[in-house]
Amino acid sequence: MNALIPRPRTRPAPGAVHVPGWLSAEEQRHLVRACREWAGGPVPIRHTRLPRGGVMSVRTVCLGWHWQPYRYTRTADDVNGGRVAEFPGWLGDLGRRALADEYEDPRAGETYAPDTALVNFYDGQARMGMHQDKDERTGDPVVSLSIGDTCVFRFGNTETRGRPYTDVELASGDLFVFGGPSRFAYHGVPKVLPGTGDPATGLASGRLNITLRVTGLT
Rank of each mutant, 00 (worst) to 15 (best):
A3F: 04
I5K: 05
R7D: 15
T10K: 12
T10L: 13
R11V: 14
R11S: 15
P12V: 01
G15P: 07
A16R: 01
V19K: 08
G21Q: 07
L23N: 08
S24Q: 11
S24K: 04
A25I: 11
E26W: 07
E27K: 15
Q28D: 06
Q28C: 07
L31Y: 03
L31W: 08
V32A: 12
R36S: 14
R36P: 12
W38Q: 00
A39P: 01
G40D: 14
G40K: 06
G40Y: 08
G40C: 13
P42V: 01
I45R: 05
R46N: 06
H47A: 09
H47E: 04
T48N: 13
P51W: 11
R52L: 15
G54N: 12
M56C: 15
S57F: 11
C62H: 14
W65F: 00
W65S: 06
H66G: 02
Q68D: 13
R71T: 08
Y72C: 06
D77K: 05
V79Y: 08
G81C: 07
G82C: 10
G82R: 09
G82M: 06
E86F: 10
E86Q: 12
F87L: 00
F87K: 00
P88I: 01
W90S: 06
W90M: 06
L94H: 07
G95H: 05
R97C: 07
E104I: 01
E104T: 03
D105C: 02
D105Y: 04
R107A: 06
A108P: 01
A108W: 02
A108E: 00
E110V: 09
D115F: 01
L118R: 07
F121R: 06
F121Y: 02
Y122T: 03
Y122V: 02
D123L: 02
Q125G: 08
Q125I: 10
Q125F: 05
A126V: 03
G129N: 08
M130N: 03
M130I: 09
D135S: 03
D135R: 02
E136H: 02
E136N: 06
R137M: 03
R137C: 11
T138C: 05
T138Y: 04
D140I: 07
S144D: 05
L145T: 08
S146M: 02
G148T: 01
G148N: 04
G148C: 08
G148R: 03
D149F: 05
C151N: 11
V152W: 04
F153S: 06
R154F: 06
G156H: 07
E159S: 15
T160P: 12
R161D: 13
Y165Q: 14
D167C: 12
D167Y: 15
E169W: 13
E169M: 15
E169R: 15
S172P: 12
L175G: 11
V177Y: 15
G179V: 13
G180K: 15
P181D: 13
S182E: 09
S182M: 07
R183V: 13
Y186R: 09
H187Y: 12
V189N: 08
P190E: 09
P190N: 10
K191P: 11
K191G: 05
K191L: 10
L193F: 09
G195F: 02
G195P: 04
G197W: 00
D198W: 01
D198I: 05
D198N: 09
P199M: 10
L203P: 09
L203Q: 05
A204T: 10
S205A: 15
G206D: 00
R207A: 00
L208Y: 13
N209S: 06
T211D: 00
T211P: 02
T211K: 04
R213V: 03
T215R: 03
T218M: 06
